[in-house]
Design a protein around this nucleic acid. Sequence first.
DNA 1: AAAATAAATGCAGGTTTTTGCAATATTTAA
DNA 2: TTAAATATTGCAAAAACCTGCATTTATTTT
Lengths: 249, 249
Amino acid sequence: MLKRERQAYILRQVNLHNKVLSNSLSTEMDVSEDTIRRDLHELSETGKLIKVHGGALSPSFNKIAFPLNNVYAQTNKRIIAQKAISLISDGMFVLTSGGTTIIELARALPQALSATFISGSIPAIVEYMNHPTIDVIVLGDKVSKVSKITIGADALSRIKNLKADICFLGINAIDLEHGITDNDWDVVQLKQQMIASSQKVVCLTISEKINSMQPIHVCAVNKIDILITELPADDPVMMPYVAAGITVL
Amino acid sequence: MLKRERQAYILRQVNLHNKVLSNSLSTEMDVSEDTIRRDLHELSETGKLIKVHGGALSPSFNKIAFPLNNVYAQTNKRIIAQKAISLISDGMFVLTSGGTTIIELARALPQALSATFISGSIPAIVEYMNHPTIDVIVLGDKVSKVSKITIGADALSRIKNLKADICFLGINAIDLEHGITDNDWDVVQLKQQMIASSQKVVCLTISEKINSMQPIHVCAVNKIDILITELPADDPVMMPYVAAGITVL
DNA sequence: AAAATAAATGCAGGTTTTTGCAATATTTAA
DNA sequence: TTAAATATTGCAAAAACCTGCATTTATTTT
């Protein structure tokens, strides 16, 4: 097998699978691993692939895996925030959880809106506070440094003692079988109580988290009224949720 | 699975869920927890995530700074903050009011300190939250947009139900005859309750406010234990307060 | 076509990287 | 406070890597 053929084969494999392993290439083409290494080294010098210990990766891999800024996800969250805002009207009592999507929602609230927002998420509270006409109620308790939200029995019982018109939850994972799931026990307690204390439950998530799962159960999908992602409502991904009776925006 | 792939997967999870656990990553990718720890360590060295006990956090979610520059008399307030810090030791329960002087105090806390801070001041809470070893208790209630602090019956009754080791009040006016005075009725309620719920009361103020007066009475000077300004304790301005039995720092 | 030259390959050796494990310390939670 | 989970450190084995060199293969020159 000629060197050129070999390298062409390697490139094909890299572009096909986004990665190649030195030792499997070696056996596939029946040359020594040294030769493969030399090939990979040459190809990496012209930028056709990225050499790593044990093999090589497609040049596009780095862009996908190590995004320079999270601007892509943020754009999607802004789209979600805009959809969510259409559900809020003057005079409403709005309960919100923590998470980056909720923060985008807080930032995108129209200046004219006058409603009451209740939350334990410190970053969200900071945003609400900067709004001219929104009343902010803080759920007090101990602050979790990880999630930047107040957690504990106090916060829980406060939520229990109120009835909000609508509740916005930034969720971590949802799938039809397991419902909404999360990875933080304390946060799950809060979300469950928020759901129980609200007339209407709206879940916000970027579509990447649709059909994924986390260790701790929050609630079944039938507990939620509206599901918002950056995708249009008729996207195939959302179809099963529409079929399950959820309003998808 | 190549090391780079593994790290890419970890980053994806962190950016998606804000938090990852070493042991779940370990089982998901079928490598030892040691390997995961080493990966997390490497990624944290280049700032791609923040390593914590048991896993890692997204860096973007963890840098919410409260934009508070252009503070009036900031240098003096920093001097005051430094003096105040000397009164705090490990394990203390510390109650703090609002105001820019208190925020300087919050910013100047030494990294090694591990105490519990209780406050309703949103900017102060943000600062406490960014400290690695301080526990933060939020006094929940409605937020006053003017003073950026929670006010109301809830906050009041919470304070009533606790006993702090020390209480730091940023004060607006003090003079020997009228004691401490302020201009916001709600804030005064809070300060009065904070004084009642603390073993030791420390008042912080820039010297400009010494011997000045505001419309609403908070308490008499004999209720406070320590008074801190940017001036040295033997400054003539402070003499009357020393004579009145107050410890001046 | 043969010889000379250049390039490619495999191998031996020694080096570095990666990984898992064990013993010990530290942190967290009950 | 103790018990459990998580970190740290040092170590060792395996895998991958690098270097120089001899051998083979391809290309160019005569």
